[in-house]
């Protein structure tokens, strides 16, 4: 096991709640999320679709300009509260200090510009001359292991494969050397052999430049491979948080346990997988209750599940669980 030097806080979310006005009321997408990501750390937010993990990522970058969105709580980046700073201030942070890569690189690259041009453009924003920028781009392409970088800078996005496009995205993000990288499902669109290459590149970045990475994914395999800490999200809340070993070896919340047991594992061939019945609810009415209640096997045993929101219970250093049952078993 390697030790990642865990430094001071890079990104903090404090009681972050995000709601959307919809015609029947308010939809609670993210509820009371607290999270700390340190320099040089890979923090994975894991959950099923609709749990709010991408909503958090987009709001840290302030990419959503939805007037029906209501944000409460604070987003603190490098000690500065960026929740309500004016847009020109945010522009200095977005891209420069916080980089982001998305699931489908073809949507994020401009199809009418050559891939190299899009990276040199980012470099020239920082006042580099064109000549220098081109040389630096070639160097960056080499960093993300694009073969023949001198030729590839002239290629249009459609001439590149999915893996190559994602590498261009990573190079573009790296060009401005941000201290935080948000990776929203970075390998979901890629084949496994290519996924393994991209994960290795991300791991190397974290070790070489001490980049903090907020990894948004639903794939536990990737998490087991590169994450340091994990937050498990369900219906807008982080229900359990801990190191990758806490979560994989000793999951406490019924949802985390159920989720881990649904994974078709390699060493088992029982021909049946444990499934979680039911679906993730849409929360349009905030009530004091546990949001996992309707799918939880234990909720009938405890009346508090229907009447109180569970508190965060600490299970030793950094392992936090929100469940009424955990309050009794606390160590």
């Amino acid at each position: 096991m390697e030790t990642v030097d865990i430094g001071k806080a890079l990104l903090q979310l404090e009681n972050l709640s995000i709601d959307y006005r919809i015609n029947t009321g308010m939809l609670s997408a993210v509820h009371n999320v607290n999270l700390t990501l340190r320099h040089g750390e890979i923090y994975a937010l894991v959950g099923e679709s609709g749990c709010g993990k991408s909503t958090i990522a987009h709001n840290v970058m302030r990419l959503s300009i939805d007037h029906n969105e209501v944000i409460n709580g604070r987003i603190i980046f490098e000690g500065q509260d960026i929740t309500s700073i004016p847009e020109p201030e945010m522009e200095k942070i977005r891209g420069k200090k916080i980089g982001m890569i998305f699931q489908n690189p073809l949507d994020s690259l401009n199809p009418v510009y050559r891939s190299g041009t899009q990276v040199t453009e980012a470099l020239m924003l920082d006042g580099m001359s064109k000549k220098e920028a081109v040389l630096r781009t070639i160097e960056l392409f080499r960093d993300v292991q694009i073969p023949n970088p001198e030729q590839r800078i002239a290629a249009f996005p459609h001439e590149l494969s999915g893996g190559m496009r994602q590498r261009v995205m990573i190079a573009m993000m790296l060009a401005r050397n941000p201290s935080l990288l948000i990776a929203d499902e970075p390998t979901t669109a890629l084949d496994v052999t290519v996924e393994a290459q991209i994960l290795r590149i991300m791991k190397r970045l974290q070790q070489k430049f001490r980049t903090g990475i907020l990894l948004i994914t639903h794939n536990f395999g990737i998490v087991a491979e590169i994450a340091d800490r994990i937050g498990i999200m369900y219906a807008g809340e982080i229900v359990e948080e801990g190191t990758v070993f806490d979560i994989f070896k000793n999951p406490v919340h019924p949802y985390s346990r159920a989720l881990l047991s649904t994974l078709p594992r390699y060493h088992k061939s029982l021909r049946r997988i444990a499934a979680i019945d039911g679906n993730v609810p849409r929360i349009t009415e905030k009530r004091a209750e546990c949001r996992f209640r309707n799918r939880c096997p234990y909720s009938s045993e405890d009346e508090r599940c229907a009447t109180q929101s569970p508190n965060a219970v600490s299970f030793g250093s950094g392992h936090i669980v929100r469940c009424h049952r955990a309050e009794e078993d606390r160590v």
């Binding site: 496994v192 794939n219 087991a224 590169i226």
Partner: peptide, 13 residues
């Protein structure tokens, strides 16, 4: 191909 699939166990990472 089999090797590239992430193993669901952080101890073997």
């Amino acid at each position: 191909l089999i090797n590239s699939v992430p193993v669901l166990d952080p101890e073997h990472r």
